[in-house]
């Protein structure tokens, strides 16, 4: 067991898989000579060379499109988009090409490609650079959308993504790269379609993923002090969405709060909540509550930005509301 940051975990996953499989190439802006905007690929250019670690022009469509073309013809490209906000510039490539070609071509073409990109706000980058549009991408069948929270899952899921044959949008979070956690030694893979119970409890189920996992775990600790045992489910994967651990938990606790960093309307909480209502309505003792970002473009001002983002306090309050305490 080693203690790693998310950055180190991702970097190890890429490095180990690239050492094992020469079909893996990386492409993106500033991933080579610069070493990666978030330093995940520092040292890769020197070690693997410019043919495998390819600096690109600022051309998001060409980055993702080239990854698709390379994947169609036998490579395993990992495209890095500097932030998920730039993924809109490649939106057609992601949802109209990557998500469709395997089905539209009747399984004759595989697309083993990964698009790595950090999501999330809270860094005073203003409205265009601070979004958490994860749910939008999870709308499209054919795409796998994952968003691990911990160093362990970051490493294991990236390694797993590099060994399967579907396009994966691998959502990271810019504020989590320094997050530390235990990562088992040796070859580690984590499935791309399994939610997991992160903390056991009996009174209320808190469903979350990515950065909000940490605020939710802290909220669970705070609730425990007040005598409330919260169970926490980390979704890890948004599509396919594994509801089994969520439903199982709610059947026990009869109450649920869904926590996400993005906006509430049409979001992850909306989906999880709808499924809970159709899959275990009779077990619910309170309407499912959602904790999410205020529905405004995020402002630059630090205090205003923090007001808009979900946090531990808002999660605790929501949990108490569904418990009517």
């Amino acid at each position: 067991m080693a203690t790693l940051t998310v950055r180190e975990a991702l970097s190890q996953a890429l490095w180990e898989e690239m050492e094992a499989n020469s079909k893996i190439i990386l492409l993106g802006e500033e991933i080579g000579v610069w070493g990666g905007t978030y330093a995940v690929t520092r040292g890769f250019h020197e070690h693997f060379g410019a043919e495998r670690v390819r600096d690109t022009p600022i051309s998001e469509s060409a980055i993702v499109g080239a990854a698709i073309g390379a994947a169609m013809t036998g490579l395993r490209p990992v495209a890095e988009l500097m932030t998920i906000n730039f993924a809109f510039s490649a939106f057609d490539m992601i949802v109209n090409q990557a998500a469709k070609l395997h089905y539209m071509f009747n399984g004759q073409v595989n697309l083993p490609l990964i698009i790595r990109t950090p999501s999330g706000g809270g860094r005073q980058l203003g409205a265009t650079h601070s979004q958490t549009p994860d749910a939008i991408f999870a709308h499209f069948p054919g795409l796998r959308v994952v968003a691990p929270a911990t160093p362990r899952d970051s490493k294991g899921m990236l390694k797993q993504a590099l060994r399967q044959n579907d396009p994966v949008l691998f959502i990271e979070n810019a504020t989590l790269y320094q997050q530390r956690g235990d990562v088992p030694d040796g070859d580690l893979t984590v499935p791309l379609d399994k939610s997991v119970m992160a903390r056991e409890g009996k009174d209320v189920t808190l469903v979350t993923y990515s950065k909000m996992y940490y605020a939710t775990m802290k909220a669970a600790e705070q609730l425990a002090v007040a005598g409330i045992q919260a169970e926490v489910i980390d979704l890890r994967c948004l599509r396919p969405l594994d509801m089994a651990p969520v439903v199982e938990s709610v059947k026990k606790t009869n109450r649920a709060v869904v926590v996400e960093e993005g906006w509430m309307s049409y979001g992850v909480g909306a989906e999880v909540s709808a499924r809970l209502h159709s899959e275990c309505f009779d077990y619910l003792d309170a309407p499912v509550k959602r904790v999410a970002q205020s529905e405004v473009p995020l402002p630059y001002n630090q205090r205003l930005e923090q007001m808009a983002l979900p946090d531990q306090e808002k999660i605790v309050r929501a949990a108490k509301e569904v418990l009517y305490v």
């Binding site: 190439i25 492409l27 043919e51 495998r52 390819r54 469509s61 060409a62 993702v64 499109g65 080239a66 990854a67 698709i68 073309g69 390379a70 994947a71 169609m72 013809t73 036998g74 490579l75 490209p77 057609d92 490539m93 109209n96 090409q97």
Partner: peptide
Amino acid sequence: SHLPLAAGIATSLQY
């Protein structure tokens, strides 16, 4: 939309 894909196929051949 297929022009970036063509660049990727060519990247694959080149690599």
